[in-house]
Each structure stands twice: as structure tokens, then as C-alpha cells.
């Protein structure tokens, strides 16, 4: 039961977004897709649920070949997948309860079970039941994001596709969502693909991390392997974590120190400075 891309190519007008992309998730794993803005992370996710058709190549969700299905045949496959959209995509004419219950209505739950499930997922995303009768526009962006998370996990899909689930959230909620993703995958065996720019949470949450660049895979490996990578783009992302002022003082141990040699080379090549200076600052 995995999501598999085979030689997927996609262009918009004359801009090639994905070129010959192939990868596959493992059962129950959390795969992070990291990449710069505009490389096609969201486009990749939308391919998996058939919202975008590739120009060529095939995509499988479990045993279903998404690329060969028509709109009606796609519906049961989509129920297997939960997708969390980058811009929340809450139904703005419905209140929060109806939003979260939307995917549950077709499952034939009676109204008590439905309400119970709604409040259960609501507490998973750390919202209180006071929001249930509000409209999405009455909530802050971070709350809307959590509601959209709740709406997606409510029907317990077998695959979860997150498009930047923690962008715009405070660090405490970010951590909570990270452990929610881990929990779903460990307890229910949900396979998750998480799109993010946040290398730090990727390193702490992911089973594997995939870096997209130029429509293809720049690096793919476990967090340990990614930390060791000498790929310039990977190092750029790793450096971003450590360049932030609070890095090294409060957060996880400085990652570049574990890979000091290659990081030094990288700093010399790109920034023409000596990483030792920075080490001084950190102390």
C-alpha cells in the first residue's frame, strides 16, 4: 500500500514543473518533500489524488492507477487519501462543525457518532469545541489550518497528503502537529507525504526526506543520510536552520557540527567565510 510515481512529467504552458519524477512511499512511512518555493511540491501532491493529470508517466495509489481513472472511478480512491491544502480550503459558507463533518457524511455514521468523531478530531488539533458553530472567516489563519487538518483526518484516510501543514503556526502548535502526524502513522499505519519548507521539523519527524529541485529529486534519504549529504541544495537548507539567530542556543544541537567538514567546505564555497567564526558566535 504505497503511493508511487513513475516517470511523471508535467508542464504548464512552456514551463516544465516535473520532469521524469519517480519515487514511492513505503508502508506507513512519513515522507517529507522539501524544496524551494515554486519547484512543484503542491503540484506533486495534487497529482497523487488526480486533481492534476500528468503529461506523461503513471501514478499509483495502492493498487489503483490514478492516471487511468475517470472522474467517477477516482472518487473511491480519493476517499482513501486525505489532502490538506496549502490555503486551508475550508468551505466558507459552512460552519466549522459542518466543515469537519463533510467527509464523514457519506460514511453512514449516525448523528451521535458523527458529533463524537468531530469533537475527537477537534481535540487532536488542540481546538476547543467553542469554535464549532463559527464560520471559517471568524477564525485566525492558524486555527483555520488546524480545522482543515481535522476535516481531513476525520474520515481516517489510509494516506495523508499534507501541503505545508505548519506554515503560519506557532512553534508549540507546530510541534503538536508534528507529533500528531507521527502518531497517526505509528498508531494507525497511515502513510503520509508532508510538503514543507521546514527542514527542521522534517529532520525531527520524517522517516525519509526528499528534496525536489528542477522537477526532479535532488536528494532522498533518512534524516541521518540527509544530514550527511554533501548535495549543495541540501546543505543550503541545513544551513538555513543554523543561520537563524536563535539556532544553536535553544534548539536542537547544531546540525552542521555533526557534519562539520562538509559544512565548512560549503561555507567557503558559497559564502567565502570561515564557519569557525560562526561557531564562536554560537558559543
Amino acid at each position: 500500500m504505497s503511493i508511487r510515481f513513475e516517470n511523471v512529467t508535467k508542464s504548464f504552458l512552456d514551463r516544465k514543473v516535473l520532469s521524469d519524477l519517480s519515487f514511492s512511499t513505503r508502508d506507513g512511512e512519513i515522507l517529507y518533500i522539501i524544496g524551494k518555493s515554486g519547484v512543484g511540491k503542491s503540484v506533486t501532491l495534487k497529482h497523487a489524488v488526480g486533481l492534476i493529470k500528468p503529461d506523461s508517466g503513471r501514478i499509483f495509489v495502492g493498487s489503483h492507477e490514478v492516471t487511468s481513472l475517470n472522474r467517477e472511478e477516482l472518487m473511491p480512491v480519493r476517499r482513501l487519501c486525505g489532502m490538506i491544502f496549502q490555503q486551508t480550503a475550508l468551505f466558507d459558507s459552512m460552519n466549522i462543525f459542518d466543515n469537519i463533518a463533510y467527509g464523514l457524511r457519506s460514511t453512514g455514521l449516525d448523528s451521535d457518532a458523527l458529533a463524537a468523531r468531530v469533537s475527537e478530531v477537534l481535540s487532536l488539533v488542540q481546538l476547543d469545541s467553542g469554535v464549532l458553530d463559527k464560520l471559517p472567516c471568524d477564525l485566525s489563519f492558524g486555527m483555520q489550518k488546524r480545522v482543515s487538518l481535522a476535516r481531513t483526518i476525520a474520515p481516517s484516510p489510509a494516506y495523508l497528503l499534507f501541503d505545508e501543514p505548519t506554515t503560519g503556526l506557532d512553534p508549540i502548535i507546530t510541534n503538536a502537529i508534528g507529533s500528531l502526524i507521527t502518531g497517526l502513522s505509528r498508531q494507525l499505519g497511515t502513510t503520509s507525504i508532508v510538503v514543507s519548507h521546514d527542514m527542521e521539523s522534517a529532520l525531527s519527524t520524517a522517516d525519509r526526506i526528499m528534496l525536489l529541485d528542477n522537477g526532479g529529486i535532488a536528494a532522498l534519504g533518512t534524516p541521518g543520510e540527509i544530514r550527511q549529504s554533501t548535495n549543495p541544495l541540501v546543505m543550503e537548507f541545513l544551513a538555513e536552520i543554523n543561520d537563524t539567530p536563535e539556532a544553536g542556543t535553544s534548539r536542537t544541537p547544531c546540525i552542521w557540527r555533526q557534519d562539520e567538514q562538509s559544512y565548512r567546505e560549503y561555507r567557503r564555497a558559497i559564502h567565502h567565510d570561515d564557519p569557525l567564526d560562526i561557531e564562536e558566535v554560537d558559543k
Binding site: 472518487m75 487519501c81 491544502f85 496549502q86 480550503a89 466558507d92 457519506s106
Partner: peptide, 18 residues
């Protein structure tokens, strides 16, 4: 149109509704 550009229609499809 607003539902389309804010991905609400896509979200509806992903929740298995037509």
C-alpha cells in the same frame, strides 16, 4: 469562482463528493 481559486472545489472532490 472563489470556491475554485481557494481550492474548495478540489477539497470537496478529495473528500469524495462530487
Amino acid at each position: 469562482g472563489t470556491m475554485r481559486v481557494t481550492d474548495q472545489i478540489d477539497a470537496m472532490e478529495c473528500l469524495g463528493a462530487n
